[in-house]
Amino acid sequence: MDTCIEKIRAIGADLLAKGTVEKVIGFADGSIPMATRPMALTSDKDVDKLVFNSVCGLNLANYVSKNSLSNKEGKIAVVAKGCDARNLVTHIVENQISREQIYIIGVPCTGMVDKRKIAALFDDEITGFEEHGDTLTITSASKTETVKKADVLRHNCRVCTHRNPPVYDVMAGDPVEEQTLDHPYEDVDQIAAMDLDARWAYFENLTKNCIRCYACRNACPLCYCPTCFVDESSPQWVGKGQNEIDVTTFHFLRAFHCAGRCTDCGACVEACPMGINVRDFTRKLNKDALELFGWEAGLVLDKRPPLDAYSPNDPNDFIK
């Protein structure tokens, strides 16, 4: 992945210099180690600011929306991992953007690391992070740790089966090998094995630390509604406080709004300041979308999502 960045920069500089695109959206270094931030470049002189490493956990499709493109700007290029590209496809399928408006710089991705797992190895603040191939070197004031990247991958990257972008204009590197999994939905099945009360307790425990900051919603490229249901005040569908039922309602509906659209990019979990694995909700829906409709979001441009289209073959055994 270290070599990709040179190519991303070269492609970005070329696109901007030729005027093919007006902006390049990519990752740049953040202000602390192990943090990257999204960045929009308008000049080819700035391309050296672009980075791509194992801590680019956010989803850049989030920064390309109807609003950001509405004023007839030129094309926008987006540095897209497998999941980002799938979310761009979802945007196109849902008529948020048109295919002509974006230029996808596809990046083959070998996964992002779980920052909380790394932080757990240290007692003090991390001051340095370096990546060489599959090895990560992390330093703090007291010690230096070397870990294999595969050991600290995020869960959604461990179970990712679409590491290469399904749709792209140019690839910044050779495609990586896709994973094949024996039990892709092991986590969902584990919850499903519990009885009803245990499941309810599990989810109540899961969301008990939620502070309702809505970072999961804001990080999600699918959440582009002008007014989110949690912000609606007449009628007010869900209370704004810490009441556990309000919290559960929020998480349930947030997840359900992503049904058949979620690409399991993990940006929601990445953004959560409390370390809540909100993917426990969306994973179940992804599993159902796959099992009931044979659907995985964001792979093709010419098919409607399952909850958006009718087919005589749709499962209907739940209807009396």
Partner: peptide, 10 residues
Amino acid sequence: SPKFILSALR
């Protein structure tokens, strides 16, 4: 809307 169902339960 799914909101209606949740509202009723709530």
